[in-house]
Structures are given as structure tokens and as C-alpha cells.
């Protein structure tokens, strides 16, 4: 793996008609979505959000992730501000059937890891190619 330099991620604000009640911008977190045979894993960068302020909602095939940032507004004069702090919100439509009972969410170093196990019926089956 070659070494490369990290770039400042661009924080995209959510464009929504619904107004938020909190006076903080709402950003779209950067995510990775991985699929294995057994589950779907979603990783989302949500710095500043503790686990108890993450809200995961699965309604039908709509997965909604919400994260409220815990702002410890330490008093002080701001000298430099290269980024804005805000909440996170993102919605996905899932294609495969998920076993909702077994969904697991953990957060470590500001990264949410959501493991969505596939329902038995949705697991891929090997398709035999018959030669005649």
C-alpha cells in the first residue's frame, strides 16, 4: 500500500426542507459501505458524537442515521476556524433484507460502525451452471 497524504474532507451540509431545532449545521457524514456474505457493514465518520447521541432508525428499507454532536463550548476567543461543528444526518435505502434483531452499532474514535446482518432468505446462493 502506498503512502499518501490526507486531504481536508469537505463537509457537505444537508439540503433539507425540514428545519432543525438546534442551532447547528447538519452535515452528511462520509461513509464506507461494505458487503460480505453474511452482513452489510456501514462505517460513518462522525467526530464529536458519543454513542448515546446516535440515533439509528430502520423503517421498511429506509435506514436513517442521525448523530448529535456534543459541543463543549469552552469559553474563549476564536483565533482560527478551519472547520465548522455540526450534527450528522444521512439516509440510505437498503436493497437486501436485514435481520433487524441482530443490528449492532458501536462507535470508536468518532467512527460509527453499524453491522447489519442479512436475513437468511437474502443470503446469496451459489448458482450452479449446468452444462448440457
Amino acid at each position: 500500500m502506498t503512502e499518501k497524504d490526507l486531504q481536508i474532507p469537505e463537509k457537505k451540509e444537508v439540503q433539507s426542507n425540514a428545519e432543525s431545532t438546534r442551532n447547528a449545521p447538519v452535515f452528511i457524514p462520509a461513509v464506507d459501505i461494505l458487503e460480505t456474505e453474511h452482513d452489510l457493514t456501514l462505517l460513518a465518520d462522525m467526530p464529536g458524537v458519543p454513542l448515546d447521541r446516535v440515533d439509528i432508525d430502520l423503517e421498511g428499507d429506509q435506514l436513517t442515521i442521525r448523530g448529535s454532536v456534543l459541543q463543549e463550548n469552552g469559553a474563549g476567543r476564536v483565533l482560527l476556524k478551519e472547520y465548522a461543528v455540526g450534527d450528522y444526518y444521512r439516509q440510505f435505502t437498503l436493497s437486501s433484507d436485514i435481520d433487524r434483531e441482530k443490528i449492532q452499532a458501536t462507535i470508536k474514535d468518532g467512527v460509527l460502525r453499524l453491522v447489519l446482518p442479512k436475513a437468511e432468505a437474502a443470503k446469496p446462493r451459489r448458482i450452479e451452471v449446468k452444462s448440457s
Partner: peptide, 14 residues
Amino acid sequence: GASYHRRERKWGSF
């Protein structure tokens, strides 16, 4: 053994 649907998170050194 995973395949990616999305890969937006970056890695590297700084």
C-alpha cells in the same frame, strides 16, 4: 472478503 458499495472515507498520513 468484503466488497465495497461506497468508499468515501479517506486514509493516509498527515
